[in-house]
């Protein structure tokens, strides 16, 4: 699924990052617990989180992820956006809850990592 489709499905807004038309992702992992994210071996997934601070971006960076979807309509602090820019991570925000965003994306075909 392309990132543009994902953004549209969750009524999202791209906060930073360079996004091409071909940017896409097949898997998702939703968590507010960063150590849980760090247990996932693969790196071809999008992180859905409600954790609105620099550590969610750091975790995405260490996990080699390119896309982070911030849910619950949280406005991230500027330092979080700056770190995402520096790390080359596309940061998207959605007004939906984690459950709703995950449900919509799962129904649309995105897969869980396990």
């Amino acid at each position: 699924m392309t990132i543009h489709e994902i953004v549209s499905l969750v009524q999202g807004k791209i906060l930073c990052g360079n996004l091409g038309k071909e940017d896409s992702v097949e898997y998702c992992f939703a968590s507010d617990l960063m150590s849980d994210v760090l247990t996932v071996c693969r790196c071809d997934f999008m992180l859905i989180t409600g954790l609105s601070n620099v550590q969610s971006i750091r975790t995405a960076e260490m996990s080699d992820l390119k896309y982070v979807l911030l849910v619950r309509g949280k406005t991230p602090p500027q330092e979080m956006i700056d770190l995402a820019k520096e790390s080359g991570i596309v940061l998207i925000m959605s007004p939906y809850s984690m459950f709703k965003a995950s449900g919509i994306l799962y129904q649309a075909g995105l897969k869980g990592v396990y």
Binding site: D32, L33, M34, S35, D36, L38, T39, T49, L51, N53, Q55, S56, T59
Partner: peptide, 15 residues
């Protein structure tokens, strides 16, 4: 609140 403290740190390092 920073997203840690789930009790997976040391097991994650070990793994």
């Amino acid at each position: 609140e920073m997203g840690f403290g789930a009790g997976m740190g040391l097991p994650n390092i070990c793994r």
